[in-house]
Design a binder for these strands. Structure first.
Length: 283
DNA sequence: GCTATGGGTCCAATTCTTCC
DNA sequence: GGAAGAATTGGACCCATAGC
């Protein structure tokens, strides 16, 4: 039974042992995220990385990086997620001289950790303890919930030192995933330019038919759906950081040739027009 | 690798917003 | 209220995708 109780929406959110099927949507947010994969079958895309998850995998994310799980409907999918405001915890941890606990999120940005049996047991116990405090609705339990999270960050800090040394062992090595990885890396560097399947074919030396098919197979997205999500996500970041940014300028800067097309895609993916989105941020 | 087709591209028209 | 510029929508054509 999943629980999702916010102690303070702007600071902290635990969603423990969630078995519900996800919408598989690409998204980003200002919070940092800890994602723990309990069981099932899932491929996770973060920025230009693709991870085929195994039970006991942890993903640490700077939420601004575009990310999404890819889950097949018939497959089991159980995970726990924690979203937290980095600024709030930076202040809190600096008071205890423990700011370094946020380093894995800043240094590694977005990464996957394979936990061994012992680490898995320790991590799951810490998660469970957080959930127990989360379910008690008292003032004291709120404090213990936050302290349990600090303990979890401490465990992750210890795990990531080893993970950084062994990072190269954790990469997905199947041929198709590797080829899609190359496509995504290329898109990450060139999404603001004029892209076509033919250009990808020339740059990466794969048939456009092959690229189109394996991309859909591995990511669940067509190549251009991915490009649009990447561009719109970038546009949202630009709007958030620059209140005076003009829709037309942003549309050209993120790679759209026509503001009209940008406007249409933006509305399709976010539900509101770029102008409405800007207003919603600063109203 | 080919091909039918649905969706993307892009120009033109319309609507909205801001400034005077 | 009118003008100018920005944003959005309409629609024809073209290309990327998915099925073979």
């Amino acid at each position: 039974m999943p629980t999702s109780i916010l102690k303070d929406k702007s600071r902290f959110d635990l969603n423990y042992y969630d078995e519900s099927k996800t919408a598989n949507a690409f998204h980003s947010h200002f919070e940092y995220e800890v994602y723990y994969f309990h069981k099932g079958s899932c491929t996770y895309l973060i920025g230009d990385k693709i991870y085929t998850l195994s039970p006991g995998d942890v993903i640490l994310m700077n939420g601004l990086t575009l990310h999404r799980p890819r889950v097949l409907n018939k497959e089991e999918y159980v995970r726990s997620t924690i979203h937290f405001d980095p600024e709030f915890f930076k202040k809190m941890l600096s008071g205890m001289s423990m700011e370094c606990l946020l380093q894995p999120f800043m240094v590694l940005n977005s990464c996957r950790l394979h936990l061994n049996a012992e680490q898995k047991e320790e991590f799951e116990a810490a998660l469970k303890r957080m959930d127990e405090f989360n379910n008690e609705k008292t003032e004291i339990s709120t404090y213990r919930f936050q302290l349990a999270f600090v303990e979890l960050l401490t465990i992750l800090y210890a795990f990531t030192k080893e993970a950084m040394e062994n990072q190269h062992k954790a990469e997905d090595t199947s041929d198709q995933a590797d080829h899609v990885q190359q496509v995504i890396s290329f898109i990450e560097s060139h999404y603001m330019e004029d892209l076509s399947l033919e250009r990808l074919e020339q740059e990466l030396h794969f048939s456009k038919y092959y690229l189109s098919k394996i991309f859909k197979k591995v990511t669940g997205f067509t190549v251009f759906h991915y490009v649009y999500h990447r561009r719109i996500n970038q546009a949202k970041i630009v709007f958030l950081l620059g209140p005076s940014s003009r829709v037309t300028d942003v549309s050209f800067n993120v790679g759209f040739k026509h503001p009209a097309h940008f406007s249409r895609v933006f509305k399709k993916l976010t539900g509101v027009s770029p102008e409405q989105y800007k207003k919603s941020i600063y109203s």
